[in-house]
């Protein structure tokens, strides 16, 4: 299946780009993170500490256990600092 992945703030800076489409069989966010971690140095640096990263699936906050569906949008970012 295809996933649309977005990166924000320092996660984007470490990964090196703000969006991409990936072909994957990852069933959950955790599976996807494992795949990304192994891909290159930028991703390894971005995902080294998952406790420092939040995820949203189809614009709703999720967790590592959140299931992924074909063509869903997965966004990775640091804890939010609005206000």
């Amino acid at each position: 299946m295809k996933l649309n992945i977005l990166y924000f703030a320092w996660v984007r800076e470490r990964v090196g780009h703000s969006r991409e489409t990936v072909e994957t069989d990852a069933a959950t966010v955790a599976d996807l993170v494992v795949e990304l971690l192994q891909r290159d140095e930028g991703c390894a640096a971005a995902f080294a500490d998952m406790s420092a990263i939040c995820v949203a699936v189809d614009q709703e906050l999720g967790e590592l256990t959140t299931h992924l569906k074909d063509s869903c949008e997965v966004a990775f970012f640091p804890p939010m600092t609005g206000g």
Binding site: P79, M80, T81, G82, G83
Partner: peptide, 14 residues
């Protein structure tokens, strides 16, 4: 509102 905007609204400040 402010407490929730601070940590649940997807903004990041540099």
């Amino acid at each position: 509102l402010m407490d929730y905007l601070k940590s649940r609204a997807p903004f990041w400040k540099k």
